[in-house]
């Protein structure tokens, strides 16, 4: 077992983990932050996407011990401080960027990482950035619309 500590959504947390404990598992089972979803557990679907030191990663394809000392942000850290939806989250709601919602935490994390590096992405750039996030409901059409709306609001 290894002792690890990191900040998650701004709060310092620590825990004892096995070498094989995945970051997604640590977030969900030890910290009870179940907004990070595990869809495929094979690095394909992106539902487990979180930010580690500001970078988009798949929580199921990183060991918890590798995040020791890092700053992690999950979907639980994306809402505004008063608990209202962030611009990106509200845009997904407004433009029906979700149906079942299972992929949405990952979609929101991927969108946030895209808009931080490219404030005015083209449709092609959005689709390329989402290549590691799979949605089986929407056909992506309304996800693209949501991201375009969020981009124009964040401007």
């Amino acid at each position: 077992m290894s002792s690890i500590s990191m900040t998650v959504n701004g709060k310092t947390v620590s825990g004892e983990v096995e070498g094989r404990t995945l970051l997604s598992q640590f977030l969900r089972e030890d910290l009870l932050l179940t907004g990070t979803h595990i869809g495929c557990d094979t690095s394909q679907c992106g539902a487990c996407s979180v930010h580690v030191d500001g970078k988009l990663v798949k929580g199921c394809t990183m060991l918890a011990v590798e995040a020791d000392g890092a700053a992690v942000t999950t979907i639980e850290g994306m809402a505004n401080e008063d608990g209202s939806l962030s611009i990106i989250q509200a845009a997904f709601q407004e433009h029906h960027g979700l149906q079942c919602g299972f992929c949405t935490p990952g979609m929101v994390m991927a969108t946030d990482s895209l808009l931080k590096s490219n404030s005015d992405p083209s449709e092609a750039e959005i689709r390329k950035h989402l290549s590691g996030n799979i949605c089986r409901c929407t056909g992506y059409h309304n996800i693209i619309k949501s991201i375009q709306a969020a981009a124009s609001q964040l401007g």
């Binding site: 970078k55 988009l56 990663v57 394809t61 990482s113 590691g132």
Partner: peptide, 9 residues
């Protein structure tokens, strides 16, 4: 290569 999350790691 891969997707953005894969390229970050």
């Amino acid at each position: 290569i891969g997707d953005p999350a894969v390229r970050n790691r």
